[in-house]
Design a protein around this nucleic acid. Structure first.
Length: 270
DNA sequence: AAAGACACCTGTCCGC
DNA sequence: TGCGGACAGGTGTCTT
């Protein structure tokens, strides 16, 4: 479900009601996530939340004595609910707060994660090798061009690699490549610096626009208040196989790259 | 080192 | 209506 804009939307929603709050209890109903939810996370109970940040698609809830690291996987979502609200089938973890709200993680497929880390968070093995944030200055055409030299993989799987740049998932990869006029299957190492300049700009644009719209709701994404995102109506190629290209009216094509559906216009993208 | 397949899960949708 | 199979917004790990 969530790509960077959806995770950012979630973070912005929960941050104001989490920061400064003491955690009163952590209830784990289903510890079997991508990795087992560690019992040591109970150490977070009684501590006060200092910050809520996002790194790539990871959500970092920092306390004085450690960090709760969360990932929403393919189907995860976080809601702020009242304690009286009965947990549903896939409500796996609750973080109860002193202000009488509960941060509730729902994740039907359980590809998400809830971890606990007491060392400096930037040293966490899941974070240490991540590429730059696409919305920050370290991400630009130079970065993409330099890393791509000698690489034969398709540019779409290249930009979806978190070690290259974080947060570009399957929807926005197709959207950005359409906006840049680049075919998703083109070899990353054979793309000019000039085209990477355009690509780095449109990656940033498409992510920022999606954040402004509250993310993309295809089936079930909702923000922390239960509201859907509105970027789905802005999608130009994703999920539009055989429909007319918005620019040239030729049918949009679908191919599979890295086992993921990929959409492009054979006329507008080369 | 790089690229591809595979794994982890459940829900939904489509065709028969 | 039921059933099998394909597919879904992610990414670490294993195999070539």
């Amino acid at each position: 479900m969530p790509e960077l804009p959806e995770v950012e939307t979630t973070c912005r929603g929960i941050r104001p009601r989490l920061v400064g709050q003491k955690i009163t209890a952590i209830i784990v109903r289903q510890p079997r996530m991508r990795w087992p939810v560690p019992t040591a996370i109970q150490a977070a109970s009684g501590q006060t939340i200092e910050q809520v940040e996002r790194r790539g698609k990871y959500i970092l809830i920092s306390l004085a004595g450690g960090t709760i690291l969360m990932h929403l996987g393919m189907s995860g979502s976080l809601r702020l609910v009242n304690p009286e609200q009965e947990p549903g089938k896939h409500d796996h973890v609750d973080i109860a707060l002193k202000n009488n709200l509960v941060l509730r993680l729902n994740d039907p497929r359980r590809f998400g994660a809830v971890l606990w880390w007491t060392d400096p968070i930037e040293k966490h093995p899941l974070l240490i090798k991540l590429g730059p944030e696409p919305l920050e200055d370290a991400f630009d055409d130079q970065h993409l061009w330099r890393l791509s030299r000698g690489r034969k993989q398709a540019v779409k799987t290249f930009i979806m690699n978190g070690h290259v740049v974080v947060g570009v998932g399957n929807i926005y990869a197709s959207e950005a490549l359409f906006r840049a006029g680049i075919r998703p299957q083109r070899q990353a190492g054979r793309i000019s610096k000039q085209r990477y300049q355009r690509l780095s700009i449109v990656i940033r644009e498409v992510l920022q626009e999606a954040i402004a719209q509250g993310g993309t709701t295809l089936q079930d994404f909702t923000n922390s208040d239960g509201q859907p995102g509105y970027f789905a109506q802005e999608l130009l190629v994703y999920g539009r196989e055989n429909q007319a290209c918005v620019s040239c009216s030729k049918p949009i094509k679908m191919i599979v790259l890295g086992q993921r559906a990929s959409f492009y216009c054979p006329q507008c993208q080369s």
